[in-house]
Amino acid sequence: MNVSAPMGPAVLGDAHIGSHAKRAALRRDLVGYAFLAPWLVGFFVFSLGPVLASLYLSFTKFDLLTPPQWIGLDNYARMFGSDARFWQALKVTFVYMILEVPLKLCFALLVALALDKGIRGGSLYRALFYVPSLLGGSVAIAVLWRQLFEGNGLVNQVLLWAFGIRGPAWISNPDTSLYTLVLLAIWQFGSPMIIFLAGLRQVPQDLYEAASMDGAGAWRRFRKITLPMLAPVVFFNLVLQVIEGFKAFTPAFVVSGGTGGPVDSTLFYTLYLYQEAFAYFRMGYASALAWVLLIVIGIFTAISFLTSKYWVYYEDDPR
């Protein structure tokens, strides 16, 4: 194995160095790679390998028990041509994202602004608001959510008691089930909130003082100072949340018992992929689905980056 890359050009090109020094350098390299080995092995064996294997599998028919069978672009053709559930899964995922990402970010920003004002016990609230983010992805919370929004769940009991309204069975009604999951996602606003809070602390206070002296009100200060100064953080949070939104799986899986029901109303893309792979053992088709998801996420991230120059302002930007 040729392992000289980290040594740099000085060593690489120098033919005058004696073989002894060369061997010493090689040994030093080897030690370096030995220390890197756990990561390298992990990356090649558990990340890159499977990723490339799934690319190959996406062109095959593969049911785990019999060897994969090359079928060319059939999986992709089927997906875009005749698979209604594929489109349903895309629709569900997009509706979820369009609602969840902006609402969660707005809410996170609002709470961050309130906590930034230095209220008494601020750090306690900060910790409390962060807790849902730690718990949110867990099965227990999804089960709890199911209990809350059932036909005779807590939400409906409160509605009945407080307003005399008989609420629908939120979770098991195809018209409302997805929104309960949106709500669950918004509830986990903790991590973008913490990032916003850190961003707010970075805004120079003298800007606010100068603006106040010039007679700018709270809303104007927010519009003209806070938002522009916070734009890079908003951007960072946006990209993160979009990627996370596409990957959402646990809540839908637990709440619908793995079916994406009722009537495919919570059939997230990842859930559909999971069903194809592990319920119906169509590993080839599931791999193709995974690659389409990767490309869609890539496109959205690229759009965010390309448009960012029109609305994200970096203080050290020479523009």
Partner: peptide
């Protein structure tokens, strides 16, 4: 409809 909709066949459901 909504009563059966979340029933995936488990005895407790």
């Amino acid at each position: 409809a909504h009563v059966a909709a979340t029933n995936t066949g488990r005895i407790e459901e």
